[in-house]
């Protein structure tokens, strides 16, 4: 029993000290590279619009700060596909919708990351009104880039 009491805390120490990734994954695109070029380098994968809805959107940082949730995917007047995110607030209260180009985002398993905007830039994005955009149906298939976890 005594021996078990000695081993158990050490077992905990042993496992809690581990972490597999050592570099952030969702790096912003290198300067001079367009968002589309950056997505092309991230092995874009086919994904249904319906499966993007309600996903958590996080910052590509170790703390995985939650930015909001996907509420809609739209095509704007120029043909750019944008992800509408209920941004900010606290526990979903007080958030406002903002739109970011889909190529500024990456898939990270069940969540998404916004990789091409700083928190400052996101704060200054206008509130999305839907004017001049067309919502994409849930069965539309898009291509979204990948990232490795940022922790």
């Amino acid at each position: 029993m005594m021996r078990l009491a000695i081993f158990l805390p050490a077992l905990l120490l042993n496992t809690s000290a581990l972490a597999q990734s050592h570099t952030p994954g969702g790096m912003p695109p290198p300067s001079g590279m367009s968002l589309a070029q950056s997505t092309a380098m991230r092995f874009p994968q086919r994904v249904r619009v319906g499966s993007l809805l309600h996903r958590l959107v996080i910052r590509p940082v170790e703390s995985q700060t939650v930015l909001g949730r996907v509420v809609q995917v739209v095509r704007d007047g120029d043909g750019t596909i944008e992800l509408v995110v209920a941004y900010g607030g606290f526990l979903g209260i007080g958030s406002r919708p903002i739109a970011v180009p889909i190529d500024a985002t990456v898939l990270l398993g069940t969540v998404m990351e916004i990789v091409a905007y700083t928190p400052e830039q996101l704060r200054h994005l206008p509130t999305f009104t839907g004017a001049g955009t067309t919502p994409l149906p849930a069965d539309t298939v898009l291509r979204v880039g990948l990232a490795k976890p940022s922790h």
Partner: peptide, 16 residues
């Protein structure tokens, strides 16, 4: 089933 699956490696996806 999650589709696409989650990417993970000890290096970034751009280096695949």
């Amino acid at each position: 089933v999650l589709n696409p699956p989650r990417f993970n490696a000890y290096y970034d996806v751009m280096k695949v």
